[in-house]
Design a protein around this nucleic acid. Sequence first.
RNA 1: CGGGGUGUAGCUCAGCCUGGUAGAGCGCCAGCUUUGGGAGCUGGAUGCCGGAGGUUCGAAUCCUCUCGCCCCGACCA
Length: 454
Amino acid sequence: MPSSRPWPRVPPLFSSARRPPKSSRNSMRLSAYFMPTLKENPAEAQIVSHRLMLRSGMIRQQAAGIYAWLPLGYRVLRKIEQIVREEQDAAGAQEILMPTVQPAELWQRSGRYDDYGKEMLRFKDRHEREMLFGPTAEEMVTDICREIRSYRDLPKILYNIQWKFRDEVRPRFGVMRGREFLMKDAYSFDLDKDGARRSYEAMFRAYMRTYARLGMTAIPVKADTGPIGGDMSHEFHILAETGESAIFFDQELEEKSRAGELTVDSMNQYYAAAEEKHDADKCPVPAERLRTMRGIEVGHIFYFGTKYSEPMGAVVQGPNGETIAAEMGSYGIGVSRLVGAIIEASHDERGIIWPEAVAPFKLGLINLKSGDAACDSACEDIYRTLSEQGVEVLYDDRNERAGVKFADMDLIGLPWQLVIGPKGLAAGVVELKNRKSGEKQEVSLEAALARLTA
RNA sequence: CGGGGUGUAGCUCAGCCUGGUAGAGCGCCAGCUUUGGGAGCUGGAUGCCGGAGGUUCGAAUCCUCUCGCCCCGACCA
């Protein structure tokens, strides 16, 4: 190839040679990774998830209730987001992306502009037009769905994974009660109440599957339905000792929840109530089956009829030419809150214990003696081999002492640790440690790799 | 929004009461010794002591105002 060509060579758009191999894209060397861990607890963080997120270098606070997500935290956030997305898609919902900034006019039309109070962050653009940072999106999605004109185009469920802002008086608990937060919000549009119920049911089931896939047990609890009534509003709580609210439920419900197979109807057979609705004297569950635990609310779904479709004009024409306002429901999951909630539910005194589905990496590869030829080459081999097979590896190749590496690895909570040291290598073994159980086994390298790629 | 607390090095904190121009541990940089669970020694860098005003010859320290952050309560995915 002559090097004297007068124009720069244009790289081929889709040449696979220019891309890193697909399989290794998601592994990292710790020496190159931006993961600023802290040995001590920052004074501002009081609860365990907030402390661990700061200490493990997942987030940094920029203002009260506003956080920057660093590489490790962002990986987890994206994994949760993706599971939520896949289950929404599987339930027949369609993803859209609505803006974070909304015109005040939309909210004036629904009448909520005045009701919302100081929690809504308001400002003016350069043309003095009143704007706001969206705390939720019922108005906007309803406005968008005015495009639907015929009953034949219903039902529809649209969802959106986007940053929201609520100017809480008192943000706290790190990302669990931030002012800015990532939320999945879905909205269903149906022709009648039966249809709305079917949509509600579909979302309910998607939620149960979502939490199960995240590795969490979430208890659905009937929530206040306001003026509409019925059994069409539920909150979903992840069980954690530090939960904000006490919940009371039949232990059989917990077993069903764990499997992710509950429906609205099957859930109606069981008792579950939040603190404010529970009356010990009237509780139908025998004491030996009643569980009392604390929960973190990580989802809330409700049906609200034509509350927005009527004032905002989201109406369709029915088969007989009549005008029908859409029956609507909305369905929220706090994606960023889930990051904190999962940590609250899954940690020990050493650090985080990630469920495999949301772990930032599957494996932490610890080179006990960086610079040792045998250790280095064994680790490089393992790193390459596993990465090529799609295992996400965080390789601690730093020139640090063993204790530092163990401590950091326990702190960030990857499900597996593979420890490579000179003594083990000489004996033909490596150590595979399970973060959750703490179990360590000395096995051959082949056995370890087989276990990790299973 | 009421009540309380707190701002000093990247992190945790001492110094403030009783003014005299800033410290420790950890972290960071260099070197040596180490190396299987947060190492040792030596040397080094790092601070508008949250901000503004005041008192004083002199303010991290005393006074006033202000801002940030945290906790408790009322409110929320």
